[in-house]
């Protein structure tokens, strides 16, 4: 990865941390579209709590932190780091290495210019 791409990923990650860790506090508390319709029309009569309802991060609120802003922010930061780690790990495991060509026989480091026209 070139330095410019590393910088892009780092800045992008900081934006995600800011959104999940800080901005999320100001998000709407209202139920989302599906939750709303489900409760208005009764689709949720047999709803059951998730098996991980006791998770320390359940509902994007960190257990043991009294302050709402901090409890949500910490959950958001953990989620961003977790999804980044799992996503990057998976992608690194799947990616084509050094000189290994892709399906069209192009080497891995060549920029994909889309399907041939």
């Amino acid at each position: 990865m070139t330095r410019r791409t590393t910088a892009f990923v780092v800045v992008g990650l900081l934006v995600a941390l800011l959104l999940a860790g800080v901005v999320s506090f100001y998000a709407s508390d209202s139920p989302d579209g599906l939750e709303r319709v489900a409760s208005d029309r009764g689709l949720d009569a047999a709803e059951q709590p998730s098996g991980v309802e006791e998770s320390p991060l359940s509902g994007y609120r960190t257990d043991g932190i009294g302050d709402d802003r901090l409890a949500g922010g910490v959950a958001g930061v953990v989620g961003v780091i977790g999804t980044f780690a799992v996503g990057t790990g998976l992608a690194l495991a799947l990616r084509r290495r050094g000189g290994e060509p892709d399906r069209r026989g192009r080497p891995a480091h060549q920029v994909d210019t889309g399907p041939p026209r």
Binding site: M1, T5, G12, L13, A85, G87, G89, A91, A108, H109
Partner: peptide
Amino acid sequence: LDERAAPLAGLVAA
């Protein structure tokens, strides 16, 4: 996923 796209995948998930 070439050498460059792999780290982007993690960023997109996050």
